[in-house]
Amino acid sequence: MSIDTTDRAIITALQGGLPLVQAPFAQVAEGLGLAESDLMDRIAAMKSSGVIRRIAAAPNHYKLGMVANGMTVWDVDDARIDALGPQVGALPFVTHSYERPRARPDWPYNLFAMVHGATRDEVEAKRAQIAALLGDACRGHDILYSTRILKKTGLRLKERN
């Protein structure tokens, strides 16, 4: 989908979030000089085209006590990743999971699964469950814990018309 100037203005207005007021769309629409119904129609169109995935809360894992954040990475047989990837993604403790290209020789892994927990032991136990699920389709794996958030801003559109 190509987005027009009005869509860009809407995205820019919503980058910081949706207001926590009774009629949030009316408030945002007023700021943009649009009718509430026009704004909602455009948001609906952006949702159906996938530009907006959902309108939801982004929780802070650290504040919820989920201080161990492990990026588990797996070298999975290419012939079996289409079948196994969705099973890994469906595990309740996996928050994101992707197939990505390997970068040999530096990086042999093609499946990434994010796992959060209150402790590293908890994350290791979850990692063992993924290992059991992948079985002999997996030729090697590793886990990278985050030790510091260096930046977190999300998508920012550049200023332009």
Partner: peptide, 16 residues
């Protein structure tokens, strides 16, 4: 800061 942000999640790929 239990909720870092509440609002739309955008997909840059879907915007081209």
């Amino acid at each position: 800061r239990v909720i870092t942000r509440f609002g739309p999640f955008f997909d840059a790929a879907a915007m081209g």
